[in-house]
């Protein structure tokens, strides 16, 4: 039943990430994106099925966990970091240039509301 638990975790992480990405302040969007990266990484990771206590190192056990999603996620983590970093710096630069931290750069006077 570990699968059920894992799906709930992924669902909650996704929902929290999406909710924060829809906020109007850059900081919330950054956290949302980070959270969504966790969710997506876990999602890809579990696509090979859950295996407990068996790595993907040859000769250590009879059954191996699926190495392919792990390889995908490993690079995804690093690329995700690069993307988050870029977004963070972009937000800092936007604040410095525009004087506010609204995602539209207009101090929250757009049609949409702000958080």
């Amino acid at each position: 039943m570990m699968e059920l638990l894992m799906s709930i975790v992924i669902g909650v992480l996704t929902a929290c990430g999406v909710l924060m990405m829809l906020r109007a302040r850059t900081f919330a969007v950054m956290l949302g994106l980070t959270m969504l990266s966790y969710a997506v990484n876990l999602f890809i990771f579990v696509s090979g099925g859950l295996t407990a206590g068996k790595g993907a190192v040859l000769g250590r056990s009879d059954i191996y966990s699926d190495p392919l999603p792990q390889a995908l996620v490993l690079t995804a983590i690093v690329i995700g970091f690069a993307m988050t970093a870029f977004l963070v710096i972009l937000a800092i630069r936007a604040r410095a240039d525009l004087g506010n931290d609204h995602v539209d750069g207009n101090s929250g006077k757009s049609q949409e509301d702000s958080a």
């Binding site: 699968e3 799906s7 929290c16 909710l19 876990l42 579990v46 696509s47």
Partner: peptide, 21 residues
């Protein structure tokens, strides 16, 4: 936003469950 986020969370969670099992 909460509705949309929950809906996406439910869909992604269900997909993950289907995939794992």
């Amino acid at each position: 936003d909460f509705t949309l986020a929950s809906a996406i969370g439910v869909v992604v969670g269900s997909l993950a469950y289907a995939m794992m099992t």
